[in-house]
Design a protein around this nucleic acid. Structure first.
Lengths: 192, 192
DNA sequence: TTCATTCTTGACATCATTGTCAATATTGAC
DNA sequence: GTCAATATTGACAATGATGTCAAGAATGAA
């Protein structure tokens, strides 16, 4: 390696993630990324090719930390406690920041029609893995649910988290989202 | 009125709605609208001012028909039947068209960060009125739920419909969405 | 029929964004 | 220290979108 990169790649991607999280893939421009990271536009093109390549790296970082946090929240307690922690994590994730950044996965999913197959695949992967995590967590508790039932329910739970993400964008407060999540858990785990 | 408009306004707005539904407020351009409606860009600016004014009209039309359909679906049968019809309507609405157009309200909500206060208000209005419709429908059936409980549950149900809209964008099929809706109804109305 | 008013049309200026490139700077390897 | 390879920089062209405008067309009212 001769002519070495002048910026820290991890730091650059982390900053890019922040930009994408606040503005979305579509609305964040290369100028935004350049301004936020302090790396010139030309250097970004040279290093990554185009905006989407940067987004994919940033999104992978986001997905990893998100799924990790979800796994952690789902790890202990009975089913109700797991879901409470899970929803808490989800809601904090989307209502953090000033202004609130919302859920990057959901925002990206809604941009799907103008996104590449790579981007769509990333979104699907996150949702699939989230379903798996939730499915395992609610299967772990001893009860009368079959695996098929648990998987269906897991998908319902993940779907509901997506709904929360939309409601957050529509202006619902953290408190309102929490109340809905609690109501949802109570209604769904009424048989536990 | 001297110098009369050369195009049918209702038809124009209906066509504009189709364009916005397929592309979203942000991605639909005045050129798209001009091409689809056969009305020149200049005429559209003259008649409406800007793209957002056209969108607001189109969205109002969409919201009216959407809420009307929701009200109809929620009108008869027991709680479970009402919800089944309601979700069916919602899912057909978002999985109709080729390619599927998804849910305009949800898409618009996710565009919120780049939208005006007027647009955001329209989205909130639809969600609020939807909550009211659902709340009334599930309160109507004789059961042990309090009004407060019904309202909380209504919000959960509306939130879940938003989740379905996200899942549709993420690539889930009509069949998968229907299965999730059924599972959701069963889980939530388990006490009815 | 005339006319004032409104609509229509195509051209124009402006702006933001993307992507490319040649010139220059940097630096590890020898 | 030299050099080859890579990175950086600022400028450039191309594109697509918005919004404006002057000139011309259309039409209801008098």
């Amino acid at each position: 390696m001769v002519g070495v990169r002048q910026f820290d790649e991890d730091e650059m991607i982390a900053t890019a993630l922040d930009v994408f999280w606040r503005k979305g893939l579509h609305d964040a421009t290369m100028q935004d990324l350049a301004a936020a990271t302090g790396v010139q536009r030309g250097s970004l093109y040279n290093a990554y090719g185009d905006k989407e390549a940067i987004f994919l790296r940033a999104f992978d970082q986001y997905a990893a930390q998100f799924l990790d946090a979800a796994g952690g929240a789902l790890a202990q307690g009975d089913t109700a406690a797991r879901l409470r922690d899970f929803f808490d994590m989800i809601i904090v994730n989307m209502t953090d920041g000033t202004p609130q950044r919302g859920c990057l996965t959901t925002r990206t999913a809604l941009d799907a029609s103008v996104s590449s197959a790579d981007v769509r695949q990333r979104v699907q992967d996150v949702l699939t893995r989230l379903e798996q995590l939730v499915g395992k967590a609610i299967s772990a508790a001893p009860n009368r649910r079959s695996t098929a039932d648990a998987n269906r329910l897991a998908r319902v739970i993940v779907t509901f988290t997506r709904g929360l993400a939309v409601m957050e964008r529509a202006g619902y407060s953290r408190k309102q989202l929490r109340e809905s999540a609690t109501t949802f858990i109570d209604a769904v785990i009424g048989d536990a």
